[in-house]
Design a protein around this nucleic acid. Structure first.
Lengths: 183, 183
DNA sequence: GGCCTCATGTAATCAGTTACATGATTGG
DNA sequence: CCAATCATGTAACTGATTACATGAGGCC
């Protein structure tokens, strides 16, 4: 039930369909949580069955109809309860770091290739995310935005996502450089 | 089988027991992978059954005997194969970021408390990890160490871990400050 | 005598991934 | 007519967590 609260948070002040949520939780697009569409539809059904969400059909023309979901009062309470509960720290579980750890057994060029690939991916994601944050700010400076905006949660989360991506970028650059220097 | 390769990497140039590995993969201590002791013993058994590791009893006096594990040639090959295979990017799945995303529904003071707690944990972990890295360098500067040391893998991985922790520290500080400024 | 570290597991459950599946509509 | 986007799932499996369990020895 880990995705559960991420879904409640995503639906906090808007209604979204499973498909729209699958865009938000997309691996490339999500700064705060990732989930596959299959997992999303399954969890949405559970959340509705548990009374934390209500879904209703939206008739569309020119494209298939959809079901959008909204928080119920119970859902809102559950989200508040979750927020107040102690948070366990996580650890990164990234195969790329394991590969770096095993550098001693690896062909350096193979490892460098992996680092370069990740670097490219991270740069692309960072650009995307930066654009999203800029759009959120809507012309305001960060300071103005954070002081005045109604709902800054997504901006706080997105900023954390960008920090992670920036680390990926600098670590990959640095590690690849170190390895190149040893060949 | 995700822990699998982390275990192979950890045993790359030393023999360790399940218990020693459980220290290495401890939530507070692990810069590159986390696993519970239960999971470790289960995975070690599988790895031995699959012929990637060999275990042998070490008789101790003053404390219980232990079984230490070493890589087999097959295990070493598997690790090389793993390193060369494409690496999927991961996404952070951190409840704390979800809580920040849901800031709009939360009591600010509750969220600030959560950020402060995480901040304290991250600082403690970072100090621990910094000490580990310093010990690895053994008097050398980072540059010297990285240029001359035999096996720099753990240092590369540990550095990534520290970057993550430093982000946690600055993000928690920043977000808490932003929230305090809005009360 | 009680708590901590060392040492190793079993069993049940939960969370997430992978593979497979379907069908409508829009745009080139 | 073919590919892309919109829209929603089922089923099998893998990986990780949680709860429970045991026993020896050292230290205060």
């Amino acid at each position: 039930m880990a995705l559960r609260h991420a879904l409640l948070a995503a639906l906090l002040d808007r209604e979204l369909s499973g498909y729209q949520l699958s865009k938000l939780f997309d691996l490339a697009a999500s700064s705060f949580w990732h989930a596959s569409s299959q997992q999303l539809y399954a969890e949405l059904a559970k959340l509705e069955a548990d009374g934390l969400l209500t879904g209703h059909e939206v008739v569309q023309h020119g494209r298939p109809n959809k079901r959008v979901f909204a928080l119920t009062d119970t859902g809102r309470d559950e989200l508040a309860r979750f927020t107040a509960a102690p948070t366990k720290p996580i650890s990164i579980r990234d195969d790329l770091i394991v590969k770096a750890y095993a550098e001693h057994a690896a062909d350096p060029s193979v490892l460098i290739k992996q680092l370069d690939e990740r670097l490219t991916q991270a740069r692309a994601k960072d650009e995307f995310l930066q654009a999203q944050l800029t759009r959120l700010r809507d012309g305001l400076s960060e300071q103005e935005y954070l002081a005045t905006a109604e709902n800054i949660g997504p901006y706080l989360a997105g900023t954390r996502g960008r920090m992670y991506l920036k680390d990926e970028i600098s670590w990959c650059e640095w590690a690849a450089e170190v390895l190149r220097g040893r060949c």
